[in-house]
């Protein structure tokens, strides 16, 4: 399947959850916000949401300081 991640097309193998994708990208799930088809997800839902062909994701990673 092909998803759009942060504006770029990306080939992925199904089945793949949001949590799987975060792990594949080597991101820390505690430090990201994920918008899946224009809905921002709660962290507890990452492992429960399967990705489908054509899905659009924005993954935003945060660093500390403020």
């Amino acid at each position: 399947m092909i998803i759009t991640l942060n504006g770029k097309a990306r080939q992925c193998d199904a089945p793949l959850t949001v949590a799987d994708l975060i792990a594949t990208l080597q991101l820390d799930a505690d430090r990201v916000a994920v918008e899946h088809n224009r809905i921002v997800l709660l962290k507890g839902d990452f492992a429960a949401i399967p990705l489908r062909d054509g899905d659009v994701l924005e993954i935003v990673q945060f660093v500390g300081g403020g």
């Binding site: 709660l42 945060f62 660093v63 403020g66």
Partner: peptide
């Protein structure tokens, strides 16, 4: 305007999911 990265992520998830349709202005990397 939090300090810790995990708190920034928590606020983004909860605010944008539970108070939808309103803009959130965040800081990361300064």
């Amino acid at each position: 305007a939090f300090d810790a990265a995990d708190q920034k992520a928590m606020l983004a998830q909860v605010f944008l999911n539970k108070v939808p349709g309103k803009p959130l202005v965040m800081g990361s990397g300064m």
